[in-house]
Nucleic acid binder design. Structure first.
Lengths: 146, 146
DNA sequence: TGTTGACAGTTAGAGTTCTAACGGTTAGCT
DNA sequence: AGCTAACCGTTAGAACTCTAACTGTCAACA
């Protein structure tokens, strides 16, 4: 059986999304990270002191998912979660130096993968694709903080 | 905090994929199904007697995931898995009448959601988007049977 | 016929994700 | 000050997903 016939536009988009994730998996596996962990770590390196709800929104997941994910990272000493004076409700999350070091290069690797995925298109086509996607997403539901 | 700045093309695609999934969730929740279950059931209704590996490929998941998913559906009497004479290795999977009835309308509901998502684009723009995506996916790794 | 490689499905263990429920904190209003 | 609503993170339980390992079946070849 060959690859099944994928004909709908949204099917194609999901396939692209899958391919992107696949492309990142060799990178993360070498470091004993999951894709989600690497993404979260990368975000925390760029946004030190983010609260968990921020991460839930960025990843379009739930508070429970983030809590669980960070629990695993914290257990490995890759992040730290602390409340700060003045706000005992929210925990500020930081990548540790070990975490930052482990995830260094992930963004670069993913950008390279993205470039490979888009390589069949020239600059004009890429701009067109981007504009169309922006038109679509302008009308999409915003990821709320669930 | 408002919606984070999503600027990359692939970020936008992932957002569209997320929105599509979100759109289907009210429908499946009413029937006490997960999105994955509804998708698998729908596939099996259209492809009676498919083997599990087929489903793994269609969904770009693993044999283990399919095994687990179908176990849940079988427990609820929504699918049946049987080997057929002449091939004791592969299990042929069928949606039961109850399963078929429960998932009836899912494809229609999803098509309507897709239409809503694409509604900001006119016919010409849709054709352009589709062509660009086809160009990209023509070079993508094929989902193998993992 | 016998052997080998490919194929199929399952299990174990771990991670991710969900909903619902919960307890705690903060902000805004009266 | 007191109340209420919103916000935050966690837990429980279940489902989905992965890899690795395993057992069993089938196909091809010598």
């Amino acid at each position: 059986m060959d690859t099944p016939e994928l004909t709908s536009t949204l099917d194609l988009m999901r396939w692209v999304g899958w391919a992107q994730r696949k492309a990142g998996e060799d990178w993360v596996r070498e470091r004993d990270l999951s894709f989600e962990q690497a993404f979260a770590l990368g975000y925390l390196v760029r946004n030190p002191g983010a609260i968990q709800r921020d991460l839930a929104q960025i990843t379009r997941t739930s508070a429970a998912s983030v809590s669980s994910l960070l629990q695993g990272l914290e257990r490995r000493g890759l992040v730290e979660r602390r409340t700060e004076r003045g706000d005992e409700r929210s925990k500020r999350v930081h990548a540790t130096p070990a975490g930052a070091e482990l995830v260094a290069g992930f963004d670069t690797a993913m950008a390279a993968s993205d470039e490979t995925i888009l390589s069949p298109l020239d600059e004009s086509e890429r701009a067109t694709l981007h504009a169309l996607l922006q038109k679509i997403t302008a009308e999409l539901p915003r990821p709320t903080r669930s």
